[in-house]
């Protein structure tokens, strides 16, 4: 089994949408929570284990105006932080 670069949202985590499209991600297993901006919310919704990080970044660039050049780095960092806290895993596949 190898780990792909296709992030997948932990299905137990709940996305709680708030004012101005920001949201709280809540993990009921750990009672940990993270706040996220509208781009993070969109990234969260795209993490289905089928899309790679590259796919996600290009979809974000299509849906948000003025996405900065550093978007890939920022989104990768966001996904990694979520992964470190058990909010996200990476799809695995047989070699």
């Amino acid at each position: 089994m190898i780990q792909t670069d296709r992030p997948i949202a932990n299905p137990v985590v709940v996305l709680r949408e708030e004012f101005a499209d920001w949201a709280v991600l809540f993990n009921p297993d750990t009672a940990y929570a993270a706040g996220t901006n509208p781009v993070g919310v969109a990234v969260w919704k795209l993490m289905d284990g089928k899309r790679s990080l590259d796919d996600i970044v290009s979809e974000i660039q299509n849906s948000f105006e003025d996405t900065p050049d550093a978007a890939f780095k920022e989104i990768a960092a966001f996904v990694n932080t979520l992964a470190e806290n058990g909010f996200v895993g990476f799809e695995v596949e047989n070699q």
């Binding site: 709680r16 949408e17 708030e18 949201a23 709280v24 809540f26 009921p28 297993d29 750990t30 009672a31």
Partner: peptide
């Protein structure tokens, strides 16, 4: 109290 800001560990 905003429900989105409440959460406890099981």
């Amino acid at each position: 109290f905003p429900p989105s800001r409440v959460g406890t560990r099981p």
